[in-house]
């Protein structure tokens, strides 16, 4: 419990170092919070079949898409139903996590 503070500090330090100034999301928490996405979007969010890769997606783009699903501005069978269940900080953390991953190479899985 007590170590929450240092780890968050560590992440902030790291993000600052790579110049992601507006990063509100916590990638380390996001890794755990995003893990359920992999059930459809492939291992490590690398995409699978009709489900696009999330790894390497720009943070702001990810957040925008999720908000658009929430508002109905973008429609999708599943994602609208799922986005409704996610809070803003949850989405921000996932965005930070996926942005921290390299995009999948080529067409592979």
């Amino acid at each position: 419990m007590k170590r929450t503070v240092p780890i968050v500090a560590g992440v902030c330090l790291c993000l600052a170092a790579i110049g992601t100034a507006l990063a509100a999301g916590d990638a380390k928490l996001g890794e755990k919070q995003a893990s359920s996405c992999n059930g459809c979007h492939g291992a490590d969010g690398r995409g699978q079949g009709p489900n696009p890769p999330l790894a390497g997606m720009k943070e702001a783009y990810f957040i925008q898409q999720m908000n658009d699903y929430k508002s109905g501005a973008r429609s999708h069978l599943f994602m609208q139903r799922l986005a409704q269940g996610l809070s803003d900080p949850h989405i921000a953390n996932m965005a930070a996590y996926y942005a921290s991953l390299p995009p999948p190479s080529g067409k592979g899985k």
Binding site: I7, A43, L101, S105, G108
Partner: peptide
Amino acid sequence: MSKLSRRGFIRLAGTAGALSAMGALAWPL
């Protein structure tokens, strides 16, 4: 799993480890 993404995973895992270590070092309980 492609070689590149495997390496990516190892790198990520390394980062995670480093972060925890950093946390532990910076704030001895």
